[in-house]
Write a protein that binds this DNA or RNA. Sequence first.
DNA 1: CAAATCAGTTTGTACTACAAACTTAATCAA
DNA 2: TTGATTAAGTTTGTAGTACAAACTGATTTG
Lengths: 100, 100
Amino acid sequence: MTSGLDRVVHEPARLRILMLLSAVEETDFKFLQSTLALTNGNLSSHMSRLERAGYVKILKGFVGKVTQTRYRLTEEGQRALSVYWKSIDEIRSLSPHVSG
Amino acid sequence: MTSGLDRVVHEPARLRILMLLSAVEETDFKFLQSTLALTNGNLSSHMSRLERAGYVKILKGFVGKVTQTRYRLTEEGQRALSVYWKSIDEIRSLSPHVSG
DNA sequence: CAAATCAGTTTGTACTACAAACTTAATCAA
DNA sequence: TTGATTAAGTTTGTAGTACAAACTGATTTG
């Protein structure tokens, strides 16, 4: 039996990103960056990974003439997150059932 | 602000190993391997890593004439584990919307 | 115009989880 | 005895990845 933990979600930076997104519903690059204290390169690649997994939607737009990237958690992302916490709870309550 | 999650503990296979050890106090290679369904190579390197981190003690002995390796969680390992769960709870409490 | 800033992306590197191959010792088959 | 087989792990090789540094392309400022 394998752990069942979704590696995309399990990565600490991404887990915190997903938790934030699940709370605020929509946010932008700069807010995430300053809130989670990630370098822009690091944040950028995490967001790409989350998009590739189908867990976030990336929305590019402008504020005045300046580009701005916003993010939303998808349904699938929300689902993955709650599955993740279920798996964590299972591990946490792990006790040896010695059969045989 | 960084996640604070101890990577040694955070790795799924090792987390399950540590949880098992914290429940049974002492166990051996074959039991861990069959219970957690890890290859021997994989289990071996995880145990080395845990030892290197000071989280487990490796005890080599014999059963009859056959070698047997046993493991114990150290105080430090126990501490690391409870710190880990505290950190997880903090991340989880970032969003009141997702629970189980 | 040139330099600096902004908002991110791409690239390079160091690390590491995993399985395959190997080691060392004991047991079995002839 | 000796050669093959099994047992119990360890070491090695590889593919994948988190992170920061370097880069891109646009805008603003001096």
